[in-house]
Amino acid sequence: MNENADANFIRPTHFLAVQITDPIIKGKMKEVQDCIVAKESILENVVVGVDLAHITLCLLSLPNESTVNEANKILQRCRDDLMSILDGEPMNLHISGIGHFDKRVVFAKVVPGDNEEKLKLFSEHFDKEFALLKSTNPFEYTPHVTLMKLSKLRSFAMKKKIKQISPKHFEDIEDMDFGHQNVKTVQLLAMSRKKATEYYFCESDISVEESNVETTEAEYAEE
């Protein structure tokens, strides 16, 4: 990133996401992480806890309560458009295969198909609706579930020790089939606020099921 890009960078504080709750998927995520760490133990420092598992749809910069409230209102207004995208069909995402972004992020892939395309349409819609609240994101949107990432490293010493996550560590399991996630809600999550559980603090959510059953805070605590 050059100096001009640094000057224009808007750091995200929140994000819109789909939570991964399926226990089979989370169990296989842990298997993959353990397999990689077994080959290079220092990579334990870059493992993303499976209880944080999600698929990001849009990064947002909401520096104060006013912008958080505005984002909550926009999200609620988006529901009818998202339901139109789904066209009466449930969203069931197939998670299969392992990839990486420049050896700095290892992730589980969302299998291409109708549901993955609808997920991309969700992201595009949010890009438009939240245009004034978006964070800087120079990368093309690729739906994924993060397994490990170097950005978890905070100390300079650790950053010097861990330069990359070698794809050789997972080449023998890169076709792992993680399973299927039924998408019930889209959530507005805070990056820095955690609940008693290990998942992110949910500012608000919208149902993307035809039944329109709201998810309560208590249910998040149980997942």
Results as ranks from 00 to 15, higher is better:
92 N>I: 15
34 D>R: 11
165 I>P: 03
75 L>E: 06
137 N>V: 08
99 G>Q: 07
2 N>G: 15
204 S>K: 08
98 I>K: 03
145 V>C: 14
221 A>V: 13
186 V>R: 05
92 N>A: 11
6 D>A: 13
153 L>C: 04
202 C>R: 04
121 L>H: 09
1 M>L: 10
185 T>H: 09
68 V>G: 05
211 S>M: 00
107 F>P: 04
208 V>W: 07
21 T>S: 11
171 E>H: 10
81 D>E: 15
65 E>G: 05
9 F>Y: 15
142 T>M: 15
56 T>Q: 02
10 I>T: 11
36 I>V: 10
202 C>E: 01
93 L>P: 09
20 I>R: 00
172 D>L: 11
112 P>R: 11
182 N>M: 08
210 E>N: 04
111 V>A: 04
80 D>W: 00
122 F>W: 03
191 M>Y: 13
56 T>N: 14
160 K>A: 06
52 L>M: 12
47 V>A: 07
122 F>N: 00
103 K>L: 00
218 A>C: 04
168 K>F: 02
174 E>F: 14
50 V>A: 05
132 L>P: 02
40 E>G: 01
58 C>W: 13
26 K>D: 00
21 T>G: 09
32 V>H: 01
142 T>F: 13
61 S>Y: 12
19 Q>A: 06
194 K>V: 15
69 N>T: 04
216 T>W: 02
58 C>G: 05
55 I>K: 01
108 A>S: 09
90 P>Q: 06
141 Y>V: 13
57 L>T: 09
163 K>L: 08
10 I>M: 08
58 C>Q: 15
117 E>F: 14
221 A>K: 14
22 D>W: 07
72 N>Y: 04
115 N>P: 01
56 T>M: 10
212 N>D: 12
27 G>K: 06
97 G>C: 10
116 E>C: 13
122 F>I: 02
90 P>A: 13
77 R>N: 11
50 V>Y: 06
18 V>F: 06
170 F>I: 12
17 A>H: 03
117 E>W: 14
25 I>W: 02
170 F>C: 12
40 E>W: 05
1 M>K: 12
9 F>P: 08
165 I>C: 02
95 I>S: 02
5 A>M: 06
175 D>E: 13
90 P>T: 13
83 M>S: 00
189 L>W: 02
7 A>Q: 10
5 A>F: 03
24 I>F: 09
137 N>S: 12
78 C>E: 02
56 T>F: 00
49 G>P: 02
77 R>L: 08
219 E>A: 15
218 A>R: 03
86 L>K: 03
29 M>H: 04
72 N>F: 01
39 K>Q: 13
54 H>P: 09
133 L>H: 12
38 A>E: 06
89 E>F: 09
14 H>K: 10
115 N>W: 00
175 D>G: 07
